[in-house]
Amino acid sequence: MSPQMIDRLWQAFLDTLVMVGVSAGIAVLAGIPLALFLVTSEPGGIFPAPKANRVVGTIVNGFRAVPFIVLLVALIPFTRLVTGTTIGVWAAIVPLSVSATPFFARIAEVSLREVDAGLIEAAQSIGCRRRHILLHVLLPEALPGILGGFTITVVSMIGASAMAGAVGAGGLGDVAIRYGYQRFDTTVMAAVIAVLIALVCLVQFTGDLAVRRLRAR
């Protein structure tokens, strides 16, 4: 591989990191409140709002139903509104976040739902208000599961970010398609795959380690 190609690969790697990192951050910030809402607004939950729950649930399902490559294109007007552009890394972050948030919210929801109802009852019995229950019971008790779900989300986002080349965002997937596939450069293709495998393994390993640490208590 030429030094230029190595530079290109390095730049693509950084682009992927930025896209996935920023989008994952947004997915957490938006996804956890969304998951908390989905769990607590159910009938019998601590903030019951069955109608709003159904509406939000349907919207979440709607976003989950659209394939990422379609979402990428369908969201172009929205992306322009938010970032002022429709190409580049930031233009890819918008659809990536929009796609990852409902995905992560559903995964976090499962973990939150597994928190024993007896713990919520106990918290109520000691005079906890509802925000205390969110803060001291639901989130900490579901944290190992949420963290495991976050790992899954990040790995699937690394996969999705490969499509970001379609909006000229660059990244590893873009390099693999343009050089590895379209120019028949097998070495670049192999290098990209190796880097992706290493990245995914690292993310999974770190996530698993953190979950194990939490569960060991």
Partner: peptide, 22 residues
């Protein structure tokens, strides 16, 4: 409670302190 209903993510101290913190 029968099944104690202690918070697994908090230490004994954290569990006992919760009512006062709240």
């Amino acid at each position: 409670f029968q099944h104690f209903n202690l918070l697994s993510a908090k230490t004994v101290r954290g569990n006992v302190a919760l009512p006062l913190k709240a």
